[in-house]
Simulated assay, not measured.
Amino acid sequence: MRVTDGPLNWETQNGYTPRGVRAAGPTVWYQSTAVVAMLDAADEEHARRIRAENERGGDARGVVASVARALGVDIDEGRGHRWDLDHMRRVVPAAETLREERDTALGESKGMLDLLRQAYDQRDAWKTAMEEMDAKHVLPLRRELRDERENSAALAAELRAAQAALRRQPARMVFHATVAEERDWMASDLVTADVLAKISATAPVGSLVDELKNVIVSQAREIARLKGGE
C-alpha cells in the first residue's frame, strides 16, 4: 500500500486521532481549540503525503529524462513544459522504434549465425576429407620419399668410401699396346672388381670413370698404331 492510500494518520497534542474521533460518534462536542488542532494535524498529514508524492514524481521524471537522452528525444521542444504529458510521451514511439530495430537485428544475426554454422560444418567436412586423402595417398608417398633419401644417403656413403679407397692407391700411368693387355690390366689386382662395381653402380652414365676408360683405350690403340708403323 502506498503512503497516499488509506485514511489520514494524524494525532493532536491532546491525543485526538481519526480513529478516536470516529469511535466517539457525532454526539460528542469538542472545544474549538481541539477542532483547530485536529484540522492542523490533518493539514500536516496532507502536506506530508503531497511531499512524498512529489518526491516519487520527481524520481519518475528523472527516469523519463534519462530515457529521453538515451533515445535522443527532445522533450523540451514545442509549447508547454517538458513534464507535460504530451512531451513525456515522446519517448514511447522512440522506444518502440528501438525495439523494432532490435528485433530486426536479432533476426539478421540469427541468419548470420546459421550461415556461420554452415561454414563451420563445411570446414570440418573439408578437414576430414583432407585427412583421409593424406592418410590414403600422401603418407605412403612420404614414406617412399624417406626410403629413397635413406637409399641415396647409403649410396653416397659407399661412393665416398670407394673414392677414398682409390685415393689411397698410388697413381700411375699405364699404357697398353693391345686391347688384351688393357683387359688383363683391368682384371688385375690394381683395379679390383669391387671398386669398379661400386663406382659403376653409383656413378652416372658418362661419368669420369667412363671417360678415363675411353682415354686409356684410345691411348693404347694409338701406341699400337705407332709401333706398327715403325
Rank of each mutant, 00 (worst) to 15 (best):
T128A: 10
G107R: 09
A129P: 06
L116S: 14
M130H: 09
E100Y: 00
D124I: 11
P93R: 03
L85S: 03
L116V: 12
D114W: 11
R102P: 00
R89E: 14
T97I: 11
L98I: 00
L85K: 07
R99Q: 03
R89Y: 13
V91W: 00
E100K: 00
L115R: 09
R123V: 06
G107C: 05
L113W: 01
M88A: 13
K110P: 00
W126N: 09
D103C: 01
T104E: 12
K110E: 15
E101C: 01
E101A: 11
L115W: 08
A94C: 06
A95I: 10
E96F: 02
D114C: 10
L113Y: 12
L116H: 12
E101R: 15
A125M: 05
W126I: 10
H87Y: 04
V91P: 02
R90T: 00
L113G: 13
S109W: 13
A105G: 03
K110M: 06
Q118T: 00
D86K: 10
D86R: 13
E108R: 07
M112C: 02
H87E: 15
T104R: 08
W126L: 09
D84V: 04
A95C: 05
M130I: 02
S109D: 14
M112H: 12
P93G: 07
M88L: 14
E101G: 05
H87L: 09
L106F: 03
W83N: 14
E101D: 13
